[in-house]
């Protein structure tokens, strides 16, 4: 039985120690926003944040999670703000998600959870990335070829975050 914290919520999973975090989150916890692409840490579709670090979870055994590690998936990027007038609160998009919409990035959309988490981690550490910073960080594969729009969206997200808008 493994204990883990995903999107600030505590879970337990009865899985083998070698089970990759990706499959624990998808099959045991039922959070399917994170995708399986290659199983070989090549494409980044499975990217989650572990303590803020973008991690390719298709090869990351659940047993390797550090004690008390914070795992963030795409579901955790969309924040739910408490709101008394609404039962479940109000969903609030992260500026990166907003920028992805503004630039109309997704096509098939399959890789975008991983792309967005990679961008969230980049902007968290580097609020004003250069072209080169973006190129070094955004290394996930997109088969639809949304790269030019991802590039623009990361810049836009940086602007949104600095301007305090979302």
């Amino acid at each position: 039985m493994f204990k883990l914290t995903v999107n600030k919520k505590a879970y337990q999973a009865d899985v083998d120690a070698d089970t990759p975090l990706l499959w624990v989150v998808r099959d045991s916890l039922g959070l399917t926003g994170t995708k399986f692409g290659c199983g070989l840490a090549q494409c980044g579709a499975c990217t989650m944040l572990i303590n803020g670090e973008p991690t390719r979870t298709c090869v990351f055994p659940v047993a390797a999670l550090p004690e008390g590690a914070e795992v963030t998936t795409i579901e955790g990027v969309t924040q739910t703000q408490p709101n008394e007038s609404v039962d479940n609160g109000v969903q609030q998009w992260h500026p990166v998600q907003q920028a992805w919409i503004d630039e109309q990035v997704p096509q098939c959309g399959y890789c975008q959870s991983g792309q967005i988490l990679t961008a969230v981690a980049l902007l968290d550490k580097n609020p004003n990335p250069s072209e080169e910073d973006i190129e070094n960080a955004m290394v996930n594969i997109c088969r639809c070829g949304t790269y030019p729009r991802i590039r623009k969206a990361v810049h836009r997200a940086a602007d949104l975050m600095q301007g305090g808008e979302s």
């Binding site: 399917t32 995708k35 998009w93 998600q97 109309q104 997704p106 959309g109 975008q112 959870s113």
Partner: peptide, 17 residues
């Protein structure tokens, strides 16, 4: 804007997998 945009940036879009 695409009608599937929001679903696809929030991880809510349902794919086959």
């Amino acid at each position: 804007p695409r009608v599937d945009g929001l679903e696809k940036v929030t991880g809510q879009a349902e794919f086959g997998i």
